[in-house]
Simulated assay, not measured.
Amino acid sequence: MSPSFPRSDSKMTFPRVRVVATAAAMIVLSSALAGCGSDGAEVQTAAAPEVGVYTVHSESLTLSDELPGRTAPYLVAEVRPQIGGILQKRFFEEGSYVEQGQPLYQVDPAPYQAVLSRTEATLSAARLRSERYDMLVENQAISRQSRDDATSQFQEAKAAALSARIDMGYTRILAPISGRIGRSSVTQGALVSANQANELATIQQLDPIYVDIVQSSTAVLKLKADAAAGVLQVKEGNGAEVSLTLENGAEYPYKGTLKFSEVSVDQGTGSVTLRAVFPNKDGILLPGMFVRAKVPAGTNEQALLVPQRTVSRDNQGRPYVLTVDNEQIVRQQSVVVDRAVGNRWLISSGIKPGDRLIEEGIQKVTIGQQVIAKGDKSGGKTSGITVARH
């Protein structure tokens, strides 16, 4: 027979086990809840990020247009004979500098010398006859008509002699202007004629020298619109200072002066030509050279220039800036970028003086987030900046 145990002992064992398990579970649950509460407190008390800001201010900005241009001679003279004959001599070296009035060619003068001698003899006889008839008409020995005929013949002889002397002078061809003469198209022994199509040589005056600058009609209209709106203060009239950049990228050492602007638009190119004159005493500029000229366009007294790294672009390539408002909240603002000025952007719209743009820490902030602005790098107002727009 199996031994028997009192019933009261069995009933007292099981309740003690359940009490211990329940207490352990409560401890684990309390620890978990405590941990969750600790994590939440850390998120709520996280510090706002610090960002570097740039405060927008207005500046005086002088704008200039950088435009293409070509050099052209200040004076050009094509040397042509004014009489016909055989070319006897050439008195100049090709490519040399010649002075105005310097002999260039000699045409055979013999035929013209003969004509001159004949006309001068006729002139002498006509003069004596006219003087004699003047005395005879006073004594009423001849009619006044005879005296008038003699006077007319004398004047005709005088004109013929003058024409012969002019032709004789044309046998020596002189330089019409001072400048550098090119190659000769004829040699000794060539037959030349008056009003021939081909020039004997060409002389170009290169000091000073012209630069013809081309500006699109669209740019002219925009310049006038900006001036009318008060965005630019434009200097009217000629006399503005112009600078040049040569084909090799070097700056031309001398400044030029704007002389005039065409009053009409070229229908073929849709452009307007500006002409400037430059000193060229060193002979650096030669006719036909391509250059780039900086022509003053106007002054913007309220230009807004910002560091380039304050401007970002969205997926469509549209520029925008991140600003910090008075409550230290990050905002996004679309802007219109005009052009680059060194390492800054010229902004035409979208911001105003006093706006604070995020320059440092853009990558760690989001729109609507509160931040701590520091390190204002506005730098103070400047003036006299010049920028060329291409």
Rank of each mutant, 00 (worst) to 15 (best):
S4A: 14
R7I: 13
D9E: 14
K11V: 12
M12C: 03
V17P: 00
M26L: 12
V28R: 02
C36D: 13
C36S: 14
C36L: 15
D39V: 15
G40Q: 15
E42S: 12
E50V: 12
Y54Q: 01
S60T: 10
T62M: 05
D65P: 00
E66L: 11
P73Q: 01
V76N: 04
E78W: 10
R80F: 15
I86A: 11
P109G: 01
A110Q: 08
Y112R: 10
A114I: 06
L116C: 06
A121M: 08
L128E: 13
M135S: 13
Q140L: 04
Q145G: 02
F154N: 13
E156M: 14
I177C: 02
R180W: 10
S193N: 14
I203V: 14
Q215M: 13
S217I: 13
L221P: 04
A229I: 04
N238K: 10
Y252R: 04
P253L: 04
V265N: 06
A276L: 07
V277P: 04
V277A: 09
N280Q: 07
D282Y: 04
D282W: 01
I284M: 11
L285V: 03
P287Y: 02
K294Q: 15
T299S: 13
Q302A: 11
L304T: 08
L304I: 15
V306F: 07
Q308I: 08
S312K: 03
N315P: 00
Q328L: 11
Q332C: 09
Q333F: 07
G342M: 11
R344I: 02
I351W: 02
G361P: 06
K364Y: 10
G368F: 09
G368L: 09
A373K: 05
